[in-house]
């Protein structure tokens, strides 16, 4: 990965360079893995279901009350209490190609705890939800109406650097993070729209 961030004020001449960069799914996967997450890119919901079933095994699962999640988690061992669940399965509003981040929105169907209490978090992300930069994702969150009471940006599994300033993975939040990216790779071009935050 180049480490370049379109939010940092793309110049006109960067447009060509942007076009030659890897696609959003490829960049997202690389960035997520760099921070200790796993990306599973699948063509459709059926394939997503297979991946999620493999990841959950016969463990217990809490899941968002969401049609996509319901379809993909169908048949798994569901529980209601997240503190008793091995895995939480959620959706995400957006995911960031440049940083491997997820943008989560909490409401009645998407409680805060599903993505933070169980030791494993699986997020289902349709490819069109990918955006280029972190700033783009913040703009997406800001546009949600009505403004949700809770939102969260997540970049990798929880971690702490508090013992000798060395990052270890697995602290209070999930110890493992899987993102199942659903949809064809070319369903969205790599170039993002105008980077709203950066343009002045």
């Amino acid at each position: 990965m180049t480490g370049e961030d379109p939010s940092s004020g793309a110049h006109a001449e960067d447009a060509g360079a942007e076009a030659s960069r890897p696609s959003f799914p490829v960049r997202f996967a690389a960035e997520l893995e760099r921070v200790g997450g796993r990306c599973h890119h699948v063509p459709d919901r059926a394939a997503a279901r297979t991946v999620v079933a493999r990841l959950c095994g016969d463990g217990t699962v809490v899941a968002d009350a969401d049609p996509l999640v319901a379809e993909v988690t169908d048949g798994l061992r569901r529980v209601e209490n997240p503190w008793e669940a091995d895995t939480g399965v959620t959706t995400a509003l957006a995911a960031v190609a440049d940083t491997g981040s997820l943008a989560l929105v909490h409401d009645r169907e998407h409680p805060r705890r599903n993505s933070v209490v169980p030791p494993v978090h699986i997020a289902l992300v349709p490819v069109p939800a990918l955006v280029g930069s972190y700033a783009d994702a913040i703009v997406r969150l800001a546009a949600v109406r009505p403004a949700p009471s809770g939102m969260r940006m997540v970049t990798g599994p929880s971690s702490s650097g508090d013992i000798e300033m060395v990052q270890v993975r697995g602290m209070h939040g999930p110890l493992a993070l899987h993102v199942v990216l659903i949809g064809a790779a070319d369903s969205r071009a790599s170039g993002s729209g105008a980077p709203e935050v950066a343009s002045e």
């Binding site: 480490g3 961030d5 939010s7 960035e31 760099r34 921070v35 940083t99 981040s101 930069s133 972190y134 700033a135 783009d136 994702a137 913040i138 703009v139 969150l141 800001a142 403004a147 949700p148 009471s149 809770g150 939102m151 969260r152 940006m153 997540v154 970049t155 990798g156 599994p157 929880s158 971690s159 650097g161 990052q167 939040g173 709203e196 935050v197």
Partner: peptide
């Protein structure tokens, strides 16, 4: 503005811990 977070949080992450992004940004609105 909300958009300011898109500028400040990447900077905070880099300056604080050398991370591209810290893991969590918890956004509470009421």
């Amino acid at each position: 503005r909300m958009a300011d977070l898109g500028v400040l949080i990447p900077l905070l992450s880099h300056a604080g811990t050398g991370q591209r992004m810290t893991v969590y940004q918890t956004l509470v609105t009421g």
